[in-house]
């Protein structure tokens, strides 16, 4: 890359470093690639790079000062797979002993026939999964080569039959799941639909037609207002008065029916593993 003195951060940052005071004052600062970051003697963390002792952002995201490093939590970008994630993949290629799955990651994930509950002979893969089929799989490991190992053996894993897929940003998934799965359960109960949520931002749903419409609107509501307080109440109110809700992905954001019931403030409803990937509020600048 021509520049002699550049050192890149490699590997994962220290997830566990607790530094709430320094986090809170910087967690809402949006930074852009090339922007110089206040380093105060800290090292370059994920989403940053260092040239001649100065630290710059390399991705668009939120600035986080977590001693011993400065890091940028990305706001955009593809799904980055992590071990033990449950994801929804779409078959993109069928080979003699494995399938290639598009899980929204930078690379396709091979699903080997030994990683399925079926007993398959060589060449029979086509009879079980074809291009375009959707499956629920778990990420087993990310190899050094970047190969993503996935398996279909486990609870809740397998082929998806029928239903509909909806895609959201992977960063919103913790809000859609809710604390301990509360949000999903609430949506399922009110709409009579079955949901399967993948950490890669894909949501599969099946059930009565108007239920599906309602779930889609609810997901969009969570996407747009997931960073605001009282989300659970708003979604509940929306589902209760669902008839007046906008029906199509292009409609105006729903506001009226739950406006009155949104008063009771609730502590952060979502606490998924990625809750640090927060969304900027209106005052982001």
């Amino acid at each position: 890359m021509g520049n002699g003195h550049r050192s890149r951060h490699r590997g994962q940052g220290r997830e566990g470093a607790p530094s709430h005071s320094s986090r809170s004052d910087s967690a809402r600062t949006l930074v852009l690639p090339g922007e110089e970051l206040p380093s105060r003697g800290l090292g370059p963390g994920p989403g940053t790079y260092r040239v001649n002792g100065r630290i710059y952002a390399s991705v668009l995201g939120l600035l986080q000062t977590q001693p011993p490093s400065v890091r940028v939590a990305p706001l955009a970008g593809r799904y980055i797979p992590r071990a033990r994630d449950t994801v929804i993949g779409i078959v993109t290629d069928v080979q003699g002993t494995f399938w290639l799955l598009d899980i929204g990651a930078p690379r396709w994930a091979p699903l080997h026939m030994t990683g399925t509950p079926w007993k398959i002979d060589f060449g029979e893969t086509q009879q079980y999964l074809r291009v375009g089929d959707a499956v629920v799989v778990a990420v087993e490991q990310i190899e050094n080569t970047g190969r993503i190992g996935v398996t279909m053996i486990g609870d809740g894993l397998g082929k998806l039959e029928g239903g509909t897929l909806v895609s959201v940003s992977p960063a919103k998934i913790p809000r859609i799941i809710g604390k301990g799965g509360s949000m999903i359960q609430m949506i399922q109960k009110s709409t009579g639909c079955t949901l399967v949520v993948g950490q890669n931002g894909r949501i599969w749903l099946d059930g009565p037609d108007d239920g599906i419409v309602e779930v889609r609107s609810a997901i969009r509501l969570i996407e747009e207002e997931g960073h605001r307080r009282g989300l659970t109440e708003r979604v509940q109110a929306f589902l209760d008065h669902g008839s007046g809700a906008p029906r199509g992905p292009k409609g105006p954001p729903p506001t009226a029916p739950w406006a009155a019931t949104a008063e009771a403030p609730e502590p952060d409803p979502a606490e998924g593993p990625e809750s640090e990937y927060d969304f900027p509020e209106k005052d982001v600048n």
């Binding site: 949006l30 074809r130 747009e224």
Partner: peptide, 24 residues
């Protein structure tokens, strides 16, 4: 331009609200 995109509160990123039917 990039700041405006994220300041507007509409943090619906890349994938936005796209839906795709699943082949049975």
């Amino acid at each position: 331009a990039l700041r405006d995109r994220y300041a507007a509160g509409s943090v619906v990123s890349g994938a936005a609200f796209s839906a795709a039917g699943v082949a049975p």
